[in-house]
């Protein structure tokens, strides 16, 4: 489902060139559960950003469901992102002036889904993440764990095949972190491809396939 071929990603920082990804080759099948580990600065986030189509490789090719997505234009990329990929951030990134329900609704708004359908799907998503009572709460009225659950509901509301999480428990206490991981794994068991970046070795061990990164290279084990 995901195939990366000779992916390089370089950043120009002043005079210097930082090679964040160095000749990455990777194939991921539908429904896999993958953890990405490695020291800080090894290129984990960059890899995920490329997979999520938020970033473009400097060179190399990326096939998503057989389609070469490195050739797509901005508007098409946005659509693929909207329909196929759910992204979960370490710092939640909820829009503070919107309620939990409105935040979850956002991707459907961007996709142009009719209001009626949106409302029922939001309701369902809220109950799935156990926040039915919090629909009208603003993000500053929610705990970190609750915020991340809203973010997960938002990431999955378009029923994407791929769920990407960049240190989703990094800002949470261990209890809420565990809950979040359970929620993500539950989704994976329903058939979603799950890729999690983590610093937590225990968490990483839970994945069927573990990727290790160092200096922009993949060290599969």
């Amino acid at each position: 489902m995901i195939a990366l071929e000779n992916i390089n990603r370089c950043f120009e920082v002043g005079e210097q060139t930082v090679q964040a990804l160095n000749d990455i080759n990777l194939e991921i099948d539908a429904g896999e559960y993958i953890s990405v580990m490695g020291p800080s600065g090894s290129g984990k986030s960059t890899l995920l950003n490329i997979i999520s189509l938020m970033d473009q490789p400097t060179s190399g090719r990326y096939f998503l469901n057989g389609e070469d997505v490195t050739r797509l234009q901005d508007q098409q990329l946005a659509q693929v992102r909207n329909k196929n990929i759910g992204f979960i951030f370490q710092s939640f990134h909820l829009i503070p002036r919107m309620t939990a329900a409105e935040n979850i609704e956002l991707p459907m708004m961007l996709a142009g889904i009719p209001v009626k359908q949106r409302k029922s799907r939001v309701k369902q998503a809220l109950s799935q993440v156990g926040l039915s009572e919090r629909a009208k709460h603003l993000s500053n009225q929610l705990s970190g764990g609750q915020r991340q659950r809203v973010a997960i509901a938002r990431a999955t509301i378009m029923q994407p095949a791929i769920l990407l999480a960049d240190e989703p428990t990094g800002n949470l206490d261990s209890h809420s972190g565990r809950e979040i991981v359970q929620l993500l794994e539950q989704l994976q068991q329903q058939g979603v491809t799950l890729i999690i970046i983590t610093h937590d070795a225990d968490l990483g061990q839970r994945a069927q396939r573990q990727l290790h990164m160092a200096d922009g290279r993949l060290v599969e084990q």
Binding site: S52, D74, Q75, A78, Q79, L106, P107, L110, A111
Partner: peptide
Amino acid sequence: TAEIGLLKALGAGRRQ
């Protein structure tokens, strides 16, 4: 800026 970035991550294109 952050909010615009988020909208893009959620699937908003330039046009939107």
